[in-house]
Structure formats: C-alpha cells, structure tokens
Nucleic acid binder design. Sequence first.
DNA 1: ATTTCCTATGCACACGTTTGCGATATTATA
DNA 2: TATAATATCGCAAACGTGTGCATAGGAAAT
Lengths: 340, 340
Amino acid sequence: MKVTIKDIAAVAGVSHSTVSRALNDSPQISSATKEKIKDIAKTMNFEFNAGARSLSGRKTGNIAVVYQAIHDQFGSSLYVSQLFIELRHFLERMDMDVILLEGYHPETGSSNISRLLRQQKVDGFLIVHDLIKQRDYESIKQSGLPIVQLHLPPVYCQKEELDYFFTDHFMGGRLATEHLIKRGCRRILTVSTTDSESEEFRQRTLGYKQALKDFGIPFEEDLVFAADSSYQKGYNLFRIIPEILANVDGIFFQTDIQAFGFLSAARERGLSIPHDMKVIGYDDAPICELANPPLTTVHQPRRKLAELACERIVDLIAKRHNESRHQEVLFPHIVVREST
Amino acid sequence: MKVTIKDIAAVAGVSHSTVSRALNDSPQISSATKEKIKDIAKTMNFEFNAGARSLSGRKTGNIAVVYQAIHDQFGSSLYVSQLFIELRHFLERMDMDVILLEGYHPETGSSNISRLLRQQKVDGFLIVHDLIKQRDYESIKQSGLPIVQLHLPPVYCQKEELDYFFTDHFMGGRLATEHLIKRGCRRILTVSTTDSESEEFRQRTLGYKQALKDFGIPFEEDLVFAADSSYQKGYNLFRIIPEILANVDGIFFQTDIQAFGFLSAARERGLSIPHDMKVIGYDDAPICELANPPLTTVHQPRRKLAELACERIVDLIAKRHNESRHQEVLFPHIVVREST
DNA sequence: ATTTCCTATGCACACGTTTGCGATATTATA
DNA sequence: TATAATATCGCAAACGTGTGCATAGGAAAT
C-alpha cells in the first residue's frame, strides 16, 4: 500500500493541504504542526508520488545527463566515465535521479531530447563533454529548462546565455610542457589527436606553444603530431616517426592512452623512461598509477567540476539566484609520477 | 506551449477521452477516427505527459538499471559498460528511459531502490551483473514491479520466481581450456580472481577442470592461481610464480585485463606468444584486437543478453505472458585471434 | 468590548490522463 | 415499422499533489 499525503493528513487530523505545505516547508504552517507532520511522514515511510508531483508542481526530480559516449570504443577515455560517476554521486545526494542519454551523436542528433521535453520528464539538462546539435540546444532553451554544460560552450551559442564549467585546456598544455622543460627537456614532441573538430585539443597545443615561448625554446612545426587517441597509435609511434623521435627528449601526449602505448613500446626497445626520454599524459586515468613506469599526467578537477555543475543545476531548477550565468574555467594540475 | 490531449480533442472535434482511447488503440474507437486523431497528434508533435500518465495509468516509461559499478576502478571490466550500452540502446528503441542506479553496494545497500519504489518513478528493474541485497530484492518483489536479472540469480531467491539471463561461465571455462588443448597445450595454468564471493569465476574454473578431464589431462592444484583482476597482476605474474610458469605451455586468464598485463611482460622478456606459450582471455573487451598479439578470448553474447532482457522486462510491464518465468543461460563462444 | 490584523488552516479547483458507465447513433432483426 | 442489439463516443470521477482564496481563531490596538 502506497502512503499518500491524505493518509498522513488522516493520522495527523489535518487536511491534506496542510500536510503538503508542511512537508514543503511553507512559511504559513506553524513549526509545531510542521514537526508533528514530518514525524508522522517519516514513521510512515512517506515519499511524494513523483507523477502527481510533476503534474501539479512541475518538478520531476529527474535530470537528463547527455553523453555522446559513456566510454569510447576502447575504453580509453576514462575521464568521461569517471566524471559521470562523480555527477551521479552528487545528484544522488540531492535526491535527484539521473536519466542517462547516451549515444548522442551530433550529426544524427537524437529525438530523445525533444521527446523528454515534450513528455516533461526532466527538470534540467547536464550536457557532458560533447557538443549537442543547435536544434536540440534551442529546443531546450525554448522549453525554459535549465542547461549546464560541462564542456566548452558550443560555437553557435552566446556565451552570455549558458552556464558552463570546464577545465582550462590551454593551461593544461602549458603546465605539462613547462613541467617537461623544468625537468630538462629541450626538444619536446606533443602528440595531439586527429579529431580536428575538437577545440580542447587545439587549446592544449596552444598551451604547449606558449610554454615553449615562455622559456625561449623555438617552436618547430614537426614537433606537433596528430594521432588517433588510441593505445595502438602510441605503441606504433616509433615506426611512424622514427627520425623525429630520435631527436626528442620529452613527449607531451594529449591523451593518457597514447602514452600507455608508447611506454609499452619503449620498454620493448630498451628505451629507459624517464632517463632517456620523459613522458607526460593527460586526464589522469586511474591506470596511470599502474603503468610502467607510473605516468605523470595532467589532472582535470573532475570532482570539483561535477560538484559545481550539480549544485548549479539544482539551483537553477529551484530558481534560486539565476539572474546571471555561472561560468567557471578551472585549472588543471600536474600529478607527478615516475615517467618524468 | 505544451500540447495535451485536450488540444487535440478540440482540433478533432471530439472529447479528450476519445483522443486518449484512440492514441492507446482502444478497440471501442472506429478506425476512421483513430486515424484522424493519430494524424493530428503527429502534426501537433504530441507526447503524453509522463507525470499525468503515471498518475492515472501507473506507467512511467522508466526502468531502473542497477549497477554496482558502471566500470570498475581501472576500467578493466569493459564487459559491464559494453552491456549497459546495449541495454540502453534496446530500451531506447522501445521508448523507455533509463534511470541509472550506479554505485550500488551489497553491503551498504542503497536507499535509492526503496525511494524509487515509494516515489513510483519506475515500471521495472533491470539488475545488472551484481548481487543485490535481499532486503532490496524483497521490497521490489513486494511492490509488484517486475525484475529481470542479468546475472546469476542470488542465492537467497527461489529460482522459480525470478526472470534471468546470463552466460554459462562453466561452458566458457570449458571452451577456453578445450581450445588451448586443441592447440596443443598440455600444462595449462588458469588465472582466476581473488574475489571468492563470485560464483561466475568458480564456474569458469570448474569448466577448466572439466575440459582437462574430457581430454584425460590430470588436474594439478598448483595450476589454478587466484590473482586480482588487474593489468598489474598479469604483468607481474613472472615474478610471482616463476617456477610454475616455467613448466606451462598455455594460460587461461579469466579476465582479459590480466592477459593484457601478461602479454606486455612476455614481450619484454622475449617470450613469443603464441609460439612459446598460448594465451586466452575472457570477456572480449574491444581492446583485445589491439593487444600485441591480438588476444584470443571468450565472448559473452552481450547484445543477445541485452535484447532478451529488454524484451522481457517490457513484456512483464505490459503484463503480457507473464504467467511463467523466462530464464535462459546463453553459451559463450571463442573469438580466435593470434595469441593461441 | 469592539475592531483590526495576522497566523494557521481548510476548501476547492487545477494539472493531464485513464476508464467505468451511460447516452446516442447506427444497423440488424422480427 | 418497431424493437433490439451493437458500435461509437461523451461525461465525470479518479489518480496524488500544489495553491489561491476564504475563514476561524487569537492577539493586539483602540
């Protein structure tokens, strides 16, 4: 038997409206009755019926988390799934449930977003890590539901109208390169990705250049190399660009997984890391500790990002201080291990 | 402006009850009006309000997917996240949304399940890969909502009362070992896990023993080794049990990730796989193809499992042919690559 | 003591959908 | 042609919660 506010009202000897108001902390209820009603509710194990609540009050207690992929094909980008776990954790603590939209693809789009909107199933959207189609973005905006973006804001949107939190990838690239330089490297290769759409990798490379400039090291076009973000490409680097590697004393991999592949190949060739060459990765995947040698890497503050985003979306849903946008760009930091 | 069935009724010149019945394919509506109403609904971009629907009709269109971990700490068990992607895909095609309960721990339990139940937010539960607490299991049962288990049924429950689908791990272990034997191996090590709770690994080891028996190879206690399910442990195997490895010509790793670590260590030591030793893994993680050499492994039919489970839970929710339980144990098969 | 004002609560309707039952129109039967 | 049976649809209540408005009661001001 499901217990409703009417059941509570009967026990408390008040009307159901009073129960509703009491449990929602309405100021027009005396603290004495509030307390009594809350006690009864607790002992009766009461929870609001979600459907009824959303029907009348327009709050579902659900937020949609939109992902292109919860993990990529090879499980390489652990960062995104790590972030998801943090997000779910914070939302759970706020009694919010997560409706996960995974497999969202910018090209094909997804009818799911507009369906959720029309069904009025969610209170807000958390867009994680990937760009969403302008059409979807605008239909959310038009519905009036809040959006928090955990990624660079898409190019088509006015920055002023979106709440977002992400990591400064320029700074990440800069710090990583600086770290290598301070460790004595002078000819530093950076391995970026072949995903030319991706602004974040462009930023990492720009940061790399800036660090070189800061230390008066001339930039060489050859030392920026684009490779798939895969273990395989890191592993094969010796075969792909042998002559370049011969004159390099440090590598900044813009993805951990590439670095893992490279470390493995280096061991086979008897190249000693960090003695002969220093290596730094990006993302601080948990396996970094287990690499051989353990991989120095750039850590994005995923827990903090998740916390900020969750607090923000909940505030926006509650319509608290939402007069202006919240936008923060957090700094990454270097986790020093044994590969540098 | 949200469009409701009343809006459609106004346009169609009928009552909103007729619209409701027409869109729900009630037999008491003529096919002419049905068609007309459905057309109007489509052009007006109508979707049922989820809250109202669940209030009256008791259907939310949500199903809870319960996970202990969507991926483990080291991203090693890609199987579970792969399975999740399949699940979500099938559920999406049935217009069901997924409320993901992740981070469920059997010891600490989770208040979320009982909260979802009392809030009446979901129509059913898909329990993936991990055991759930008896208390949670029973409160779901008691609520009358259907459960489909994608794992061995928990010990405390009568098998007759639960729908489940999973892979035959005994057969997996047997096939893997058979494969090695047919490839000429005679002294086969199997590396299991230290997780003693886990029935599925016990089954894999039993299958291993059975295969030995089938081929008249004597079983040796020493050749069953329990190690963490991690890359690290596979990598360090040479240091942990050197004397055992010296006399072994094949290894059945009960987890791919252990095999990856071992392959890496083998390369460093100049041990040629599959020439000097043959190696088989378990789970068919996507990176198997990229290992060096590509890893032969046991594939669990995750897509089929997901499909069966999703179809079943939807049927149960719709109260179609739910007089008896559906229980299937699927067979795994070997994916032959270059490590054997 | 009367009036005024506020506090605390109840009444009744609304939200969008489903559904039992009754009403009407249509067709078949005698 | 009158009646019965059937197909089609509308009315109204219900699901559980939120909330504007009215009101009862009490305290404070006159």
